[in-house]
Design a protein around this nucleic acid. Structure first.
Lengths: 167, 167
DNA sequence: CTCCTATGCGTGCATGTACACGCATATACC
DNA sequence: GGTATATGCGTGTACATGCACGCATAGGAG
């Protein structure tokens, strides 16, 4: 009732911040901002953002991989990852790794990166706990399921957009 | 099991993209990106992003308001809104509005803005429908509740961060 | 060997997001 | 009037995100 609803302007009182928006997208974006802040705050002492922690942890699990491969694992746009990696390389947490295919750029965790992950992990766990305390185990599970359902939604045409004439 | 888990590297097979990440934050961020794309695609024909549509709709409900007031309604950082408004002003969809207090900058929907909203609304509804078809009415409701719970979480200290010495 | 296609990579551009600052004005207190 | 506090605003800085491009090389078709 708060963000994208236009319908019944007949609302008389309207409590300020009680209801979620009628728009699932706005709801999700808001929730994403809020939860990101929780994790970022928790990881702040370790000098990482949650996005960076996510990259590092995946890298620690993957070993030496190409940028594209890492992007696939993170389910993140490759070009976004390219830029996210830059900060981590600048900070000395990620370093280049040899690669068979000259087209590929291999990357891997540096010692400093490994250390950063080790330092950050307990903070991350704390954040996880805080979220679970807030949502309950059920809520966390539901959230995972909803997220999964939404991730699989890519590529749909909704309105009669123009595209799709090639093949 | 996919993004931020480090524990049992003992995993033998691991289906590629079946499980949500162990990290609620990563899940939520991914879901947010995915759903944003759905709405942005739907609104593309109307020349708007969902973030812009959200601003315009709220503005259409609010009439002439100050930037800060609009930010409060959107539950969005004021400085973020300042910049988001710039694009809409450049596009002629938002215009200045008189204000009693000289400190305030009043903004309101222009005619073009109203037209854009009118053109975009059906697309937005389509996107809503698509999401509901994907999540079910229950899923949409759950999502709203979870989002609401997360929004209320601001300001917590998780790890023994340094701050909080002032008062 | 040569040409075509697939794959990997990085950048330009646009936008979203938020924090730290600094500037201006409104208000209250004296 | 003069000072202190509160409120509103915009910018600098930094990062996240994704699309459109263009460049380079690998691999196969001839």
């Amino acid at each position: 009732m708060d963000a994208l609803t236009q319908s019944t302007t007949t609302r008389t009182k309207k409590k300020p911040t009680d209801q979620p928006s009628a728009c699932s997208c706005v709801n999700l974006r808001r929730a994403s901002r809020a939860i990101t802040k929780v994790y970022d705050d928790a990881l702040h002492a370790a000098g990482l953002k949650v996005t960076q922690y996510s990259v590092l942890v995946n890298l620690s699990r993957a070993g030496a991989v190409s940028v594209s491969e890492l992007a696939r694992r993170l389910r993140l746009d490759r070009t976004t990852l390219v830029r996210n990696l830059k900060a981590l390389e600048r900070a000395g947490m990620v370093e280049g790794a040899p690669s068979s295919d000259p087209r590929e750029r291999g990357v891997s965790l540096s010692e400093a990166g490994r250390a950063a992950v080790a330092q950050a992990r307990p903070r991350w766990i704390e954040a996880q706990r805080l979220i679970e305390a807030r949502l309950g185990a059920d809520g966390v599970r539901q959230l995972g399921e909803l997220a999964l359902a939404l991730e699989g939604i890519a590529g749909r045409d909704v309105a009669g957009a123009d595209s799709v004439e090639s093949e």
